[in-house]
Design a protein around this nucleic acid. Structure first.
Length: 1023
RNA sequence: GGGCGAUUAGUUCAGUUGGUCAGAACGCCUCGCUUACACCGAGGAGGUCGGCGGUUCGAGUCCGUCAUCGCCCACCA
């Protein structure tokens, strides 16, 4: 397919766009991504963490998916039956919010204008658009997903899994309905999730009110004082609490403070001391009264809630801390999460005083219809009139706001559905504790276990329209007998009594129930939908066809590894484990790899709202998919998040403009270089959108781009020099030093890369391959093989080893840089279709299915590697002398080496390479070499290198250099000697270490003697 | 408030079990268009490994503590 290319015409720069366009369709057409259960092979399976259809993928997704594809491609080459299941998540709240916002800004409509069906239709359209975009981004990145198995968390297959799961949990009484405080957005009239709430500190007040005690007896307080920042909520008070044992509580508080004071740093002491004094004072001033109140609470005494004149009980509850505030606390169960808990404990009524729009309802009596702020003012004023306001203080208040409407959040008690977690959570904990699921890096297991160990019930209902509607139907009026008659013989319908409101809760496993399913009675379906994570939790098995016992489920489940980011370990990973165990009876995956987060230049996470996100497509257009992938892999270490400063690239002149906190949200930016404007991702106005868009890129991918180009050119060189290639076995005798060396190194690198990738050490694997490819293959092997390629007699072997080495390197790099390696693989196949050393054979039709290289231990040759290292040292020394003596580049020089005979034997065969790689002719080598009269010299451990420069030498420079060298050596010798003089060291350190240090000292001394001799020689010559 | 992590050259990061580990890339300086590659080649300068204690014969490497930053979780009558 690339046969139109002639090797002579290959471009000097790797054309990533062309390669990507050429090979992705090629792979797809050949079905390389598709997998079917195959009993003859072991499966290797990954399910994608489904990206939200809220928007396009960002760099974090690019990282996540690159890491998955690297593993998938390696395992595929290793002969596993590899399946990577792709898909997307409907992301309930986020997606509905995005679409609603757009509906409002573009058409001025709210969801109520469209109605449930209309809105959901809109969201499906949005989903179709973004799903397509997301999948195409994944393809651009080269992801080798099995697209035939693409899933969506709201598609019929997933929906069926959700229904079956809900049904089964409901039947097992693991799902129940209860009350829960939600964050109510009074503007949008919807509940918002905790992570959609932001807190802002605003100036506010702390009011102290008096509630009259009903029929106080002599000696009893006439009032109870409480304090609040939200006076209007008193209208919903249903109790006043006091601690059941205020004396003990105060004592504990005091002891606790004393302990903290002892350990506290100086600057916090004053504050703690003040607190301590306050608590001590309370014993005198407050405790007697609290004791009385406590007794009154035990007697079931009441106080009168002012303004609405409702008697409410005094209750004894530990929530009322005697060391805080007035020691008494008003209880508003319907509008405060903690009070709700107290309400449950004390079996208090819960009075909701709010309408959905934030005005007060009938329970607020005279304040009905007022807004919260109006009611607050009026309540305060009225209490003041009654003389029941004791005092008011200024106080900074941390107020929750809705991220979406920017209005204050009101806590509101609502009906919600829950999953009981005690048993399920325990199962999920056990799976990690006993190693059925291993988490890498291991430290993340702690968060997982801590979170699950709280075993808090999982609230699964959401007041949304976009999602899996809860399959519960209410029937108020029917009798159980009527239900039994209506659903006779059906195992897919179960019901329970609705203990809260009476009637029945009916759950259907498959089909929706008709309104008249129970003759003579009306069924009403629950409006709420399920939490997105409910369907995501089923992802590993729902995508494989559960609840059907499909061949896929049997073969691919449990999946091999899950690759994800740390912020959803609890929300998602833990719930997948628990649901997998619950539904399938097996863990969903054997291993979890938690990868780093991508941060911006300020160390902050990238997010849409901060405007610091990066579109991987921008990076790919500039650097290519291979560079994106390699760059990301190179940055994936175990401990460090990825900090990525980014720049806008001016579309007019190409100048880079640093992205800062100031400019990252601007719709338009003026280039400081050419002065022209360009648009950013924030461009919304037509005038801005009409401008050319400036992509956001990072220089951090240049390293990878350069690497790809280097590899491309080494490949080009190889291809250009394979003319006349004839395949055939290569015997060991034919191999020269450089062949043995490169094959030895290749064997080592193969083993390392394989092992590192198996342990998710992507950065190290990338580094090992980078260094081998660039510093060894390109810088040495290719350079050294050049002369043989010009020599007909030696050409054939050189070609065979070269082709084989490149072939292996391509295979090792393919998972990280798939397009480039395929491009070269195909070209290589044209000129050298059969490759290999001992027994050459036809290369695979695509590198994607080529066998993963095996490290051949027999090729590892320490002797050759030592020899080569010596060669490299001498080469470097000679080159360094050339530079420091300013020898003109084309000027040939001659050098000699004073060394032992063995070293000389190692160096002698390398003579030709000193010529070609340093323009230097090797003269005398060995122990008898005499110091030339006027020479530049470098002293290395065990070797002294001389370059005879005759009249050219800059003696002054050499002398200065020698003196500098000598003083450095003497410092090191002194340090070394001191170490060895330390009796403790010699006595207590292991003998091997001591010996090593002695050897080091000796080597240093020898080296210094050489330098001194050379210096003397120079000084003599100078005078 | 609890937990986790980070702090190493101008920048972004590696440094496996404490004993040549003080490294890489980019940037910078000096040379060089040598027939694969200037997205290149050769050479070079740059760090008392956040501060302070401690363990040890020996500590970026282990312990404590402080400082700064980040993430997760919880909470704030």
């Amino acid at each position: 397919m690339a046969s139109t290319l002639s090797f002579k015409d290959l471009p000097k720069q790797y054309d990533h766009a062309a390669a990507q366009q050429r090979w992705y369709p090629f792979w797809e057409e050949h079905g390389y991504f598709h997998s079917e259960p195959n009993p003859g092979r072991k499966p290797f399976t990954i399910v994608i963490p489904p990206p939200n259809v809220t928007g396009a993928l960002h760099l974090g997704h690019a990282l996540n998916n690159t890491l998955q594809d690297i593993l998938i491609r390696m395992k595929r080459m290793q002969g596993f039956e590899t399946l990577w299941v792709p898909g997307t998540d409907h992301a309930g709240i986020a997606t509905q919010a995005v679409v609603e916002r757009r509906l409002f800004t573009e058409e001025g409509k709210t969801r109520h204008d469209l109605g449930r069906e209309g809105l959901v239709r809109r969201i499906w359209a949005w989903k179709d658009e973004y799903e397509a975009r997301i999948l195409s981004q994944l393809k651009q990145m080269g992801c080798s997903c099995d697209w035939q198995r693409t899933r969506f968390t709201l598609d019929p297959i997933c929906a069926r899994a959700v229904r079956h799961t809900f049904f089964s949990l409901f039947r097992q009484k693991l799902i129940y309905r209860g009350k829960r405080m939600v964050n109510w957005d009074t503007l949008l009239q919807t509940a918002v999730a905790d992570d959609e709430v932001f807190h802002e500190t605003v100036p506010g007040h702390f009011w102290y009110f008096l509630y009259p005690v009903i029929d106080p007896k002599p000696g009893e307080p006439k009032h109870v004082m409480i304090a609040t920042t939200r006076p209007e909520t008193m209208l919903g008070d249903t109790a006043v609490a006091v601690h059941p044992d205020p004396a003990a509580a105060l004592e504990r508080a005091e002891a606790d403070l004393r302990a903290r004071l002892e350990e506290a740093p100086e600057k916090e002491k004053a504050e703690l001391q003040a607190e301590l004094d306050d608590v001590r004072k309370r014993r005198e001033t407050l405790l007697p009264q609290l004791m009385k109140l406590r007794d009154m609470a035990r007697d079931g005494r009441m106080v009168m809630l002012p303004l609405v004149n409702r008697p409410i009980p005094l209750v004894a509850d530990e929530w009322a801390k005697p060391e805080l505030g007035t020691g008494c606390v008003k209880i508003t169960p319907a509008h405060d999460p903690n009070d709700y808990e107290v309400g449950l404990r004390q079996k208090l009524p819960m009075i909701n005083i709010l309408n959905p729009d934030g005005t007060l309802n009938d329970h607020a009596g005279p304040y009905r219809g007022q807004t919260i702020m109006q009611a607050r003012q009026n309540v305060v004023a009225d209490l003041e009139k009654l003389g029941l306001m004791a005092k008011v203080e200024d106080r900074a208040i941390d107020l929750a706001h809705s991220d979406r409407s920017k209005t204050p959040i009101e806590p509101l008690l609502t009906d919600q559905w829950f999953v009981k977690m005690d048993h399920l959570a325990q199962m999920a904990m056990d799976a990690v504790t006993d190693g059925r699921v291993k988490i890498f890096p291991q430290r993340y297991a702690k968060g997982y276990l801590d979170w699950l160990s709280e075993k808090r019930d999982w609230p699964i209902s959401r007041q949304l329209w976009w999602g899996h509607q809860i399959p519960i139907w209410y029937c108020k009026t029917a009798s159980e007998r009527e239900l039994q008659a209506a659903f006779a013989g059906r195992s897919d319908v179960v019901w329970q009594a609705d203990e809260q409101y009476g009637g029945w809760l009916i759950c259907s496993q498959e089909a929706d129930l008709a309104e008249d399913a129970v003759p003579g009675h009306k069924l009403v379906r629950e409006e709420d939908v399920l939490d997105t994570w409910f369907s995501s939790a089923l992802w590993p098995h729902s995508t494989l066809g559960w609840p059907e016992p499909t061949p896929e489920l049997k073969y691919y489940y449990p999946t091999s590894v899950l690759i994800t980011s740390r912020d959803i370990i609890t929300l998602w990973v833990a719930r997948m484990v628990l649901m997998g165990l619950q539904n399938v009876g097996q863990v969903p995956f054997h291993e979890v790899f938690v990868h780093p987060k991508i941060l911006d230049a300020y160390g902050e996470g990238m997010s849409k709202s901060k405007g610091n996100g990066v579109d991987p497509v921008d990076v790919m257009e500039k650097f290519g998919a291979d560079s994106l992938r390699f760059g990301l892999a190179y940055l994936t270490t175990e401990t460090q998040d990825i900090r990525m400063p980014v720049d806008f690239e001016c579309p007019h002149c190409g100048a880079l403009i640093e992205q800062t906190k100031e400019n990252r949200m601007l719709p338009r930016i003026t280039c400081g270089h050419c002065g022209k404007d360009f648009a950013t991702q924030w461009a919304e106005k037509p005038a801005d959108k009409a401008l050319p868009r400036g992509p956001v890129v990072s220089e951090r991918f240049e390293m990878a781009r350069n690497f790809c180009n280097k590899l491309w050119n080494a490949s080009r060189f190889t291809l250009m020099n394979l003319e006349g290639y004839i395949s055939g076995p290569v015997t060991d005798q034919e191999l020269l030093v450089e062949d043995r060396w490169v094959l030895s190194r290749l064997a080592t690198v193969t083993a390392q890369a394989t092992e590192l990738l198996d342990r998710y050490q992507y950065a190290d694997a990338a580094r090992v391959l980078y260094e081998f490819a660039w510093d060894e293959f390109c810088s040495f092997y290719v350079e050294m093989v050049k002369s043989r390629l010009q020599d007909a007699a030696r050409r054939t072997t050189a070609q065979r080893v070269l082709a084989h080495t490149l072939d292996t390197l391509l295979r090792l790099l393919h998972p990280m840089i798939p397009f480039l390696t395929e491009e070269v693989w195909q070209l290589l196949g044209q000129i050298a279709p059969e490759r290999g050393l001992e027994a050459p054979r036809a290369a695979a039709p695509s590198v994607i299915v080529a066998p993963w290289p095996q490290s051949d231990p027999a090729r590892r040759d320490p002797h050759i590697e030592t020899q080569f290292a010596r060669f490299q040292e001498v080469l470097r020394a000679v080159r360094e002398i050339r530079t420091r003596q300013n020898v003109p580049p084309r000027k040939r020089i001659e050098f000699s080496v004073l060394c032992d005979a063995a070293t000389a034997d190692l160096l002698r065969p390398m003579a030709a390479y000193f010529e070609s790689m340093a323009g230097a002719r090797a003269g005398a080598l060995g122990p008898t070499v005499k110091r030339p009269a006027l020479a530049a010299n470098t002293t290395l451990p065990g070797m002294e290198i001389f370059v005879d420069l005759a009249g050219l030498i800059d003696v002054e420079a050499e002398i200065a250099r020698k003196r500098d060298e000598l003083s450095k050596l003497e410092t090191r010798i002194a340090a070394q000697a001191k170490k060895l003089d330390n009796e403790n060291f010699v006595r207590r350190a292991p003998a091997a270490v001591v010996q090593k240090e002695r050897d080091a000292l000796k080597a240093l001394e020898e080296q210094s003697a050489g330098v001194r001799a050379a210096l003397e020689e120079l000084l003599r010559a100078q005078s």
